[in-house]
């Protein structure tokens, strides 16, 4: 049995429906544990005080904002190459989640930056990159809504997603070139211990896991919605024909 069998819309719904509540609960529990742990059971940072705790929302949201775009890129490629409807609809479903994650990252970044840098917004490379990512999400979603025919929309948004990804990476480097910025380096990396002490790091990992689970739950739910909408339209056209 090939993995592609799950790309059939009916099969996909049948397989994921029983899993969905579990993922939702797992996301809820992980998020509550991670956030409560992060907010109440970690010491304040010696320089940044309790402000640093917004980190538990900011970093996972920022990571997801990028990862969701990457996931959209992968599903777009799968649609273009293998023509599996679920893949295209999953990309469509992920768009709004991605843009909300980008907004959360931008908003929490502003709230975090205000006391630390003394301003809500700076044209720092990292912040600017997220603003640009926001614009890319906006264009992607706008193209989906503008085109009536579902398969045409899927094809064109996929092409846009691929080209957009290249330009998003280019923009990232261009923005770095343009302004060397205030933002600290990436908070989590393989040498994370240098940046963030373990006490902060463990709850952060739990929060990241929570955001990933939340995304998986939402994307499955929204893909179900898109599949059912498409099915409703298909039945309607068949009835009218």
């Amino acid at each position: 049995m090939s993995i592609w069998e799950y790309a059939n819309p009916k099969k996909f719904i049948a397989t994921t429906t029983p899993v969905l509540p579990w993922v939702m609960w797992a996301a809820a529990v992980t998020l509550v544990v991670g956030l409560v742990w992060g907010f109440f059971f970690t010491p304040d940072d010696y320089r940044q005080g309790s402000t640093v705790k917004i980190f538990y929302l900011h970093v996972p949201a920022a990571m997801m904002a990028i990862n969701i775009w990457v996931m959209m890129l992968v599903t777009s490629l799968i649609w273009l190459i293998r023509r599996h409807h679920v893949s295209a609809l999953a990309a469509k479903a992920a768009g709004p989640i991605g843009i909300v994650m980008t907004l959360i990252a931008l908003f929490t970044g502003a709230v975090w930056g205000q006391p630390i840098w003394g301003t809500w917004w700076v044209w720092d490379p990292r912040l600017t990159s997220f603003l640009i990512l926001f614009l890319f999400y906006l264009g992607y979603m706008a193209l989906w809504t503008a085109i009536e025919d579902d398969d045409t929309a899927a094809d064109l948004t996929s092409v846009l997603c691929i080209v957009g990804s290249v330009f998003a990476v280019l923009s990232r480097y261009a923005v770095n070139f343009w302004n060397q910025g205030l933002h600290q380096g990436a908070s989590l990396s393989l040498d994370a211990e240098e940046n963030v002490a373990d006490v902060f790091w463990y709850p952060a990992l739990v929060c990241i896991a929570g955001f990933i689970l939340l995304f998986v739950a939402l994307v499955i739910l929204r893909t179900h919605t898109e599949i059912r909408l498409r099915r409703a339209r298909a039945l309607e056209t068949r009835m009218r024909a």
Partner: peptide
């Protein structure tokens, strides 16, 4: 035919 195969919506019906 009404139920002819091959339409782009086929997977959804």
């Amino acid at each position: 035919a009404q139920d002819a195969a091959g339409g782009s919506d086929e997977a959804f019906l």
